[in-house]
Write a protein that binds this DNA or RNA. Structure first.
Lengths: 297, 297
DNA sequence: CTTGGTGGTCCATGATGTGGACCGATTGTC
DNA sequence: GACAATCGGTCCACATCATGGACCACCAAG
C-alpha cells in the first residue's frame, strides 16, 4: 500500500516474488501483510467467502446487517460490494426477505473448477465416500492455500456421532486440525518454520497452539506417519489425517476423518490410518494420471 | 488505510463525471446499462469467469497474454486483477508454466453453492443423469441470470453423437438456445418484451435472431409446450428444452437435451419432451420441498 | 543481431471507491 | 400512540486508490 519508493532498479533475476499468505479473514488479521494486488477487489472477495460460509447452513441467506457486523466494514461499502457481486451473478438477493446468498455464478465456477483445473475435487469424491462409509464418521478433504488450510469437501458417514467442528469453507492456519497438520508436517523444516512465523498472529485465536507446540506436533506426526488432532482445537473433537501429495509430490491436500476420542483409539485408529493412507495413494495416483495427460495436451 | 474523515462543510456542486461505459467486456455484453456497483470489482469478476471458461478444456491453464487479448484490457490491469484473485485463492498460477487456472476457493465456493443456497444443482443432478442416459445425448441445466441464460451443468450421454455447442459457463441472451428459450417463453409478455429490448445489442452477435424472430420463437414454444432450437444458433446443432419453475413458480431454469436434427424428430422428439417434462417436474418438486423446509427454519 | 513473442513491474495522474450521515420502514415494548 | 432500536438502502464531498502506457528481462525463431 505504501509506495515503497526504495524501488529496486537493479534486476533481481531468478526469484520471482515468493510471497505467500496474508489473507484477510474476518478479523482483518495483522498477518504482517504484503502487496494485496488490489484492495477493493480483495475485500469484495473476502465478502464473497463470507456470504458463502455464513449462508452455509442457512438457506434463507444472510442479512446485510450481519455481513457488515462480521466483516467489520462500513455498511455502505458492504452494500456496494454486494451490488457488484450480484451484478456478476456470484451473489443473489432474495426478493422477499432482502437476504443475500450465493448465486448462479458461484455454482458455475465450482462446476468449472472441478471439471477443469483443480481435479482434486473430482479425484477425491470416491475416496471420501469410501472413507465416510467405512469409518462411519465424517471424512474431509483439506487443501493448502499459502500458510492456511481450507476445508474443501466434507462427507458424512453413517455413524451415530456427527462432528461439526469443521465445515466446507472453514480456514485455519496450517497445523491446526488433523488434515491441516498432516500438510504442514509434510513440508520441509525450513518451510515449516516460515509457516509458524507467518501464522503467529493468526494463531492468537487458538490459545493452545504456541510455536513450540506446533513443532512438537509436526515431529509427532512425522514419526507416526499420520497427523492426530487430539482435541486441542475443540475439546472432545478428535481427528486423524494423512497428506495427499500432488503429481510433483508437493503436499497440497489431506484426507482426514473426524470423530470423538473413543472412536479414534487403539486398533481402530490403526485401521483408519491404513484406510486413509490407501485412499491418499489413490488420489495421488489419479492426480499423476491427470498430470501426464496434461503434459501431452 | 485509516480514513480520517473530518467535517464536510463546504458544499460545492462539483460535477462528478457521469461515465457511461458498460465495460463488462468479453463477449458477455452488458444488460443495457445498470448501476455497476463497483467498477474494478466488476471487471475482476468478469476476468474470473474468463479464467474458468478459457481453462475449461485446457487443464494446463491460460496465459496472461491470452487473457489480456480476450478481455481487451491493458495487461497491467489484468495482471493486477489476477494477483488479487490469486491472493484470495480463486485463481492459482502454475509455478512452472506461469499459466493461470481456477484455484481452491473456486471449488470451495461451488461446494458451498450446491450444498447451500442454490439447491438447484443438487436437485438436478439425478435428473440430468437420467436424461442423458435415457436419451443417449447430452443433457443440460440452464439457469437464468437477468436477461441472460447461463449453462450451469452438462451431462454427457452414452450416445455416439456429441454436441459441443454448449458448455458449462457459456452465457447467451435469453431466447438463444433451447433451455434459454424455454425460460424466456415462460415469462409474461411484458417481461419478454423487456428482455428483447435489453438484449438487442447483445444479439448483434447472433445474426439470425432479430426481434421478430424472437417473438415467433416464443409463440411457437408456448404452443408446443417445449422450446425447440432447430439449428438457428449453430447450423446442424439442434436441441429441445423445458422450463423448471422454482418454488414460487417463477421460471428460473431449464432442462434441455442437445443433439442433431435427425435425432430430434417425430416420435423420438415426443418421447424426449415427455421425459424432460417429467424430470422438470421432479426438480420443481424438490425445490418446493426445500422451500417449505426453508420457511419453517 | 533483430524481431516478435512471452511474463512481469513501475509510477504520475485523476478517476474511482470510500464511509459517515441520513432516510424510510419495520419491528418490539412500555 | 410514541419511542427506541433495529432493519435495508442511498447520497455525495473527499482523497485514496486503481489506472494503463511505457519499460524491462527473457526466450525462440529467423
Amino acid at each position: 500500500m505504501r509506495p515503497e519508493l526504495a524501488a529496486s532498479r537493479v534486476s533481481d533475476p531468478g526469484i520471482s516474488a515468493r510471497r505467500s499468505a496474508s489473507w484477510t479473514i474476518a478479523h482483518a488479521a495483522e498477518t504482517g501483510d504484503e502487496p494485496p494486488g488490489s484492495q477493493s477487489v480483495q475485500r469484495t472477495l473476502v465478502l464473497l467467502n463470507l456470504v458463502g460460509v455464513l449462508a452455509r447452513d442457512r438457506p434463507e441467506g444472510v442479512s446485510l446487517a450481519e455481513l457488515t457486523r462480521v466483516s467489520e466494514r462500513p455498511k455502505a461499502s458492504v452494500r456496494r460490494a454486494l451490488i457488484a457481486l450480484m451484478h456478476a451473478g456470484y451473489v443473489e438477493q432474495d426478493s422477499k426477505t432482502a437476504r443475500y446468498r450465493l448465486g448462479v455464478q458461484a455454482a458455475v465456477l465450482g462446476e468449472l473448477a472441478s471439471h477443469g483445473a483443480d481435479r482434486l475435487g473430482e479425484a477425491s469424491t470416491d475416496s471420501l465416500i469410501r472413507l465416510a462409509d467405512a469409518a462411519g464418521d465424517t471424512a474431509f478433504l483439506t487443501v493448502r492455500h499459502g500458510s492456511y488450510a481450507v476445508c474443501a469437501r466434507r462427507q458424512e458417514g453413517p455413524g451415530p456421532i456427527r462432528n461439526f467442528a469443521l465445515a466446507v469453507g472453514d480456514r485455519h492456519p496450517l497445523g491446526i486440525g488433523a488434515g491441516s497438520l498432516a500438510i504442514l508436517s509434510a513440508l520441509p523444516d525450513e518451510e515449516v518454520e516460515q509457516v509458524i512465523a507467518a501464522t503467529a498472529a493468526a494463531r492468537q485465536r487458538y490459545p493452545r497452539f504456541d510455536d513450540e507446540t506446533m513443532r512438537r506436533l509436526v515431529r509427532r506426526s512425522r514419526k507416526n506417519g499420520y497427523a492426530l488432532n487430539d482435541g486441542l482445537v475443540i475439546p472432545g473433537s478428535w481427528a486423524i489425517g494423512v497428506v495427499v501429495p500432488d503429481a510433483d509430490d508437493r503436499p497440497v491436500a489431506a484426507l482426514s476423518i473426524a470423530s470423538i476420542a473413543e472412536r479414534l483409539r487403539g486398533a481402530r485408529r490403526d485401521e483408519l490410518v491404513e484406510l486413509l493412507q490407501r485412499e491418499a495413494h489413490n488420489v495421488h495416483s489419479a492426480l499423476q494420471a491427470l498430470q501426464a495427460h496434461r503434459r501431452k495436451a
